[in-house]
Computed example of a mutant assay.
Amino acid sequence: MDLQGKCVLLGITGGIAAYKMANVASALKKRGADVEVIMTRNATQFITPLTFETLTGHKCIVDTFDRDFQFDVTHISLAKKADVILVAPATANVIAKMAHGIADDMLTTTVLAAGCPKLVSPAMNTGMLENPITQDNIRTLERYGFTIIPSESGVLACHDVGKGRLPADAVLLDYVEQALTPKDLAGLRVTVTAGPTQEAIDPVRFLTNHSTGKMGYAVARAAALRGASVTLIHGPTALEPVRFTEDVAITSAQDMYEAVTSRFEQTDILVMAAAVADYRPATVAADKVKKSDGDMSIPLVRTADILGTIGPRKTHQFLCGFSMETRDMVAHSAEKLQRKNLDMIVANNLKDPGAGFGVDTNLVTFLTPDGGVRQLPLMSKDAVAGAILDEIMARKGR
């Protein structure tokens, strides 16, 4: 997501993980954000304000009564300027102060004055985190509308093993992006399918395709960031799970069929981006099929047609299919659109440079029942995902 024009205020407190926030500040700047930093005095023992000043181009604020700066009421001006505040790492002490309205330094004063979304990432010793007092303070922050980013588990700086680690940079950035993304899909239930299926031949071998799941994962992520309740149903992939979604892992086309059809009544938008096998072996050998000198043939039977089954049954659902072709793309996709009673189909040609499996870009064409055919330029799959959702929302009239 391009964060151009957005102000992200980082509140850094006195935990050992404070040094990690230099990478977060840098990553936000690279995405176009205007980054301001407030540090507690204890935080400056772990990393210097100069580091953040160099990365952000702004003075790093520490002292509430600092006079070596432009004349304004700084905690008020920063509170008004910020589009989101991320307090990370958040110590038990600062969490307690924020939960009870104690504003005795620049960070807690600014947080108390701000009306923007506030994200808090607790990072501390496991015993401190799990102490009932800290847990009660965290629940209090949630009750007041703060978003708590769950701590991760691992080896801590004190050499204990347990919860209390600051999450990875990518996690913190995802939470910031979610807070800044307009929620035009709020209240909608979106189901996305992604990746390949695997159709077993025997306990060792299976039939599959080259799908990596990147396109479907991008759609699921974009829908979740825009406020939808998202279920991602996917075949075997090597991709990291998509945050803010319900993750449903399947293996075969039949698994995919059951996962989609069982959720269909509760779905508002279905985006079928998975490359589901059209055929499976007629029988699955109980043991490994041994190699012989002659040729071998494998009888295949048709798998269940997911869209062909649910298309005629749709009531309020918006159905978006995908069509990957190697020739006559528009004609074949238009026929599929009509035959399966879809509301939209996203077509691409595997032979086009930059389109297809395993790459980070796509070249797609939207087809709709009213005869509409709209080709998009070559774009990143994240951008394509956003364009797909924009088109769906425009056609749903929201």
Rank of each mutant, 00 (worst) to 15 (best):
V176K: 04
T13L: 04
F52P: 01
I250F: 03
A282T: 13
D382P: 01
T237E: 13
I345D: 01
T147H: 14
E142Y: 01
S77Q: 14
V384D: 03
L270Y: 02
A331R: 14
I76W: 00
P377F: 06
F366A: 01
K291T: 13
L28T: 05
A383S: 14
V284R: 08
Y257G: 08
M256V: 09
I38H: 05
S262P: 02
N137Y: 01
L270H: 07
S262A: 12
P196G: 07
P49Q: 07
L10C: 06
R189V: 12
G213P: 04
A114I: 00
Y144G: 11
L239C: 11
F71V: 14
A394R: 15
P312W: 06
V8R: 01
V364W: 00
M98L: 15
T309W: 09
F318D: 03
D343E: 11
V219L: 03
V192E: 01
Y257D: 06
T326Y: 00
T309E: 13
F146I: 05
L350F: 09
Y257H: 13
L239Y: 05
L10N: 05
A96S: 15
D268V: 07
A222Y: 00
K30Y: 09
N348S: 00
A273T: 09
T147R: 14
R374G: 05
A179N: 11
I298C: 07
T108R: 07
A82V: 07
G101R: 08
K314E: 12
L172R: 03
T140P: 01
G354T: 09
M39W: 03
P241Q: 12
T245Y: 03
S262K: 14
A286P: 00
A179D: 10
D370F: 10
A282L: 13
I306D: 05
Y217S: 04
E258D: 15
P167K: 01
R263S: 12
A383Q: 13
R395H: 09
A88M: 08
R205N: 12
N349V: 04
G164N: 06
I306Q: 02
L172K: 03
T191S: 08
K6C: 06
L78C: 04
P132M: 09
L180Y: 10
M124L: 03
A17H: 10
E265A: 15
Q45H: 13
G321K: 03
H316D: 13
A277G: 11
V271Q: 08
T13P: 04
I16N: 07
P281T: 08
S26K: 13
R67I: 13
R165Q: 14
K20L: 05
T51W: 02
A238Q: 14
G356Y: 09
A168F: 03
A157F: 06
T108N: 09
T191D: 05
T326S: 07
V37D: 06
Q254R: 12
Q375Y: 08
D66F: 06
T140R: 13
K30I: 10
F322C: 02
I95V: 15
L173E: 03
T309I: 12
E246Y: 02
D268E: 12
G311Q: 02
A355W: 02
T365R: 04
N362Y: 08
G227S: 11
A123F: 04
A88G: 10
S323R: 00
D72H: 13
L156V: 04
R398G: 07
V284E: 11
L3K: 08
A385M: 06
E325W: 02
A90H: 02
E258P: 01
M215P: 00
A99G: 00
R205H: 10
P49Y: 05
G294D: 14
R226L: 10
L270K: 05
K351E: 15
T251E: 15
G101E: 08
